[in-house]
Design a protein around this nucleic acid. Structure first.
Ligand SMILES: [Zn+2]
Ligand SMILES: [Zn+2]
Ligand SMILES: [Zn+2]
Ligand SMILES: [Zn+2]
Lengths: 144, 144
DNA sequence: CGAACTATCGAGAATGGTTCTCGATAAGTG
DNA sequence: CACTTATCGAGAACCATTCTCGATAGTTCG
């Protein structure tokens, strides 16, 4: 019985295409775990989760993979707490994050602002705006 | 010859009023150095600067003072680089930062946005907005 | 397929920013 | 001044992150 092609989520196989990086089993699992978490995770938290299925995976591998993904713009590293970096999966287009204060869930928010501020900054400070970063804090739908 | 009262910058003496913290010479100097820097400084960079005038000041003292100021909302700790926290002097009112990509100067920018997003977030995600943080990157007047 | 090449892996050591400890000192009180 | 308590400086401890290195696995080319 031939089933229709399953609605597979975007494959990871091509994420490193065009770079000298190789797609390995470990990297596939780091990507999958972080992508499905939908929240900021520290390298150590991610390592914990990965060890459940692959006990011998090394912490350094997690750090190395996260750094490679960060260079590609596929993870964002805004660190919500001081002293420990946290990583969240990211589409590569410009967008912002809505972070739930209760459960930590992170949702992407498309960018709509910036226009007003460009003028304010230019007139008030003589500041030539090149980019911005915006984070929202509040309570997500599941938590309220 | 009695001069009119100098236009002294807001005194530091009262910053810890109402808390159990004491105002000491070391803390006065940390505050003064950070306030006049107008840029993000790491604890170690601040320590370097302070040692020019007070060679025996300890790095731990700098960290302790910065932490106390952070609790009071007088410094902000957004960490621009990964792996090392940086601190900038902050008024306690809600505002944002314009950070020069070339020289690192940080200027305060009053908040004007948020209204639009409150509706977008509520309708799109069922997200109850409580707060936000916005940073601008670009080139400041002195650098262009 | 197999050989050759090279990126990546895991484990542990090294690094370095930050915090802690503790006896000495200074600030506040009266 | 006498007393109490917060803060100081110096160095050790802590811990997140990076580095080292021999082993392993992905890739390419026949
Ligand atoms: Zn939530
Ligand atoms: Zn934007
Ligand atoms: Zn500048
Ligand atoms: Zn604002």
């Amino acid at each position: 019985m031939k089933r229709p092609r399953p609605p597979r989520t975007e494959s990871e196989a091509t994420l490193f295409a065009g770079t000298r990086h190789r797609m390995t089993t470990q990297r596939r699992q780091v990507i999958s775990a972080l992508r499905s978490a939908r929240r900021y995770l520290t390298a150590q938290q991610l390592h914990e989760r990965l060890r459940l299925k692959r006990p011998r995976i090394g912490l350094a591998t997690v750090y190395r993979t996260l750094e490679a993904l960060r260079e590609l713009g596929l993870v964002s590293t805004s660190s919500p707490r001081l002293g420990e970096a946290a990583y969240v999966w990211c589409t590569s287009e410009h967008h912002h994050h809505a972070i739930c204060s209760r459960c930590g869930r992170v949702d992407d928010v498309p960018c709509k602002a910036g226009r007003n501020y460009e003028r304010i900054l230019s007139r008030g400070l003589g500041f030539a705006l090149q980019g911005h970063q915006l984070e929202f804090f509040g309570i997500c739908a599941r938590c309220s």
